Simulated scan of single mutants.
Amino acid sequence: MKKFNASKGDSSRKYDKNKRSSDNKSRTSRNKPQQPEKNEVPEKREYKGRGKNERPVYGSVEEKDQKKKPFRKPYSPIKRGSKAGKEKSENQPEYNLKAIQKTLPREEAEIRLNKFIANAGICSRREADSLIEKGEIAVNGKLVTELGYKVLRKDKVTYKGKSIRPEKPVYLLLNKPKDFITTTDDPLERKTVMHLVEGACEERLFPVGRLDRNTTGLLFFTNDGELSAKLTHPAYEIKKIYQVTLDKPISKNDVDAIRDGITLEDGLAEVDDLQVLSLDKTILGLEIHSGKNRIVRRIFAHFGYEVTALDRVAFAGLSKKDIPRGKYRFLNEKEVINLKYLNKGKNKKRQK
């Protein structure tokens, strides 16, 4: 047995003391946050979507190839079989809406000059106001510089000496797939719904309302500003039907609570109808008229459910029947007339 030397001390204990001090230093170094180097570039972060609690999720930005061309994948309309057995694209229909125009009130026959110019495909309404202020627009041979000036459809409006007329109306229905954002222009050159209807017609189109990037289903396009305003205004209470898929079965108490209406951070969320469609109680049918942002996902997130799939199957009385995913079709004249008269009595509520 080794004897303890008081003068020299215990070498084994001395070693253990040194080891403990080194372990403490390493432990403190691990706990201490690492400082970035002076030349280190901070990591870029971007919006990645929303989590189960509907809160924003951010992540690192993936470096993109600058030489990579923007997405320009051609999409086509629904093709119909011809007599020869070959497929042909659906032709853009001509709408005879004179009967509707005659029934409109007299004040609706007059439209603002900037809207007249925008409907002719010259520019946007805001840009049209600039053209009017600069004195570049003439009505019936007289220059007009007054903003808010109203014209009749029969008036002769000229720009740079050339007569302009509003574009013919276009009404189009798209069955939107995933991974397309609802916007007319994206500076990040991501896939937009405009790529899906590219080449459908010569007239300018814009989507009415919006669907989230991961939401599929019906999306309506038109160049009819009046109809677009009607379909998006909350006073008209336009019906929308969704098929909702949840991450877990929904309870009967939650179904009853959603039907009764719930209060979210931006106010009351009313549901017109809610039905369970699957035996495992994860697939639901939801009818709603609210147009609030991400309202369907937020309703179920309020009760702790995650919406794993969301598909809009009906919009303003229109269905996606016979429209494959990623395809579109033009509305027929009867469907357009129905939209024009849809919830006509709600106009009184809007005026109040």
Rank of each mutant, 00 (worst) to 15 (best):
M1R: 09
M1P: 10
M1C: 06
S12Y: 09
D16F: 09
R30T: 02
Q35C: 00
K38S: 02
K38R: 05
Y47C: 04
G49R: 12
G59M: 08
V61W: 06
K64Y: 05
F71S: 09
R72G: 05
P77L: 05
R80Q: 14
S89E: 15
N91T: 14
T103Q: 15
K115Y: 00
G121N: 05
S130V: 10
I132S: 08
E146D: 14
Y149W: 06
K154G: 00
D155H: 07
K160I: 01
S163W: 00
R165V: 04
P166T: 02
L172V: 04
K176R: 04
D186F: 09
K191E: 10
A200M: 08
C201V: 14
P207I: 04
L211Y: 11
L211R: 05
T215R: 08
T215W: 04
L218Q: 07
L219A: 13
L219F: 10
G225D: 08
S228V: 00
A229F: 11
T232R: 07
Y236N: 08
I238V: 15
Q243T: 09
D247V: 06
V255C: 14
D256R: 13
A257D: 11
A257Y: 04
D260T: 08
G261V: 09
T263N: 10
L264R: 05
D272Y: 02
D273E: 14
L274S: 10
V276N: 05
S278E: 08
I299C: 05
V307G: 11
L310T: 08
L310M: 06
V313T: 13
A314Y: 06
G317D: 13
L318Q: 09
S319Y: 05
K321A: 06
K321C: 00
D322Y: 08
K327R: 15
K327H: 14
K334F: 01
K344Y: 01
K346T: 00
N347H: 07
K349A: 02
